[in-house]
Amino acid sequence: MSGISIILVILVAFLAGVEGILDEFEFHQPLVACTLIGIVTGQLGPCLVLGGQLQMIALGWANIGAAVSPDAALASVASAIILVKGGQGVDGVGTAIAVAVPLAVAGLFLTMVVRTLSVAVVHQMDAAAEKGNFSGIEIWQLIAIALQGLRIAIPAAALCVIPAEIVQNFLQSMPAWLTDGMAIGGGMVVAVGYALVINMMATPEVWPFFALGFVFAAIGDLTLIALGVIGVAMALIYLRLTESAGAAAGAAAGTGDPLGDILDDYE
């Protein structure tokens, strides 16, 4: 990697680290982070595939309440750097993904460390508030954010300066049964993410829609967008039917399109 590439990779890593805590722009999602690293290192194709596969695994990783999910930021940044330095192109994706999962655990511990350090940061904010010092609070907020950015940027920088041969030798020394087996495991791991999501949403009322999705997907001609349209249509129909069933007892309200109602109120 050239010097400029390394600087840009570290910048992407910093952004991913910041987003790992903010969860707003989603720079830390594998789909975005791997793609950005692919762009700045000139290896867009393999990184896109890596981002896509890793994203499928990470679909259900979400920070709920105080619980912290496996860290998508470190997993995607570090595995993309390893993929780029390994120089095996798309063939290296399976191995990179297998490396990514332990890294997601490592990242989880790192963010817990920073979240503990932030306790000290908010105590500084308390002191600033006591004096009515606005800029004090603002500066400490930015320091806390920067700490989360460095959490990913520092490991990324370290990976960048490790010579490419060492990474390559390490990857090539892995026997075929291990890398193939890991690729097979990667195909199954996706199920864990889906299981997490289903556990959060499933009620007896919505299970039939899961069954419908499952059998509709067997029709290969339907793209994911088409399936999305079917899903939205069914949700709207279901909501309107339940509403009109309820309206029989009393006054009907709204148009049956809750989002539309919200928007109508506002424009």
Partner: peptide
């Protein structure tokens, strides 16, 4: 509505 859509898509993704 979101969970209906979500469950439908999840069924498709599992498949």
């Amino acid at each position: 509505g979101a969970s209906i859509l979500g469950m439908f898509i999840l069924g498709a993704l599992v498949m």
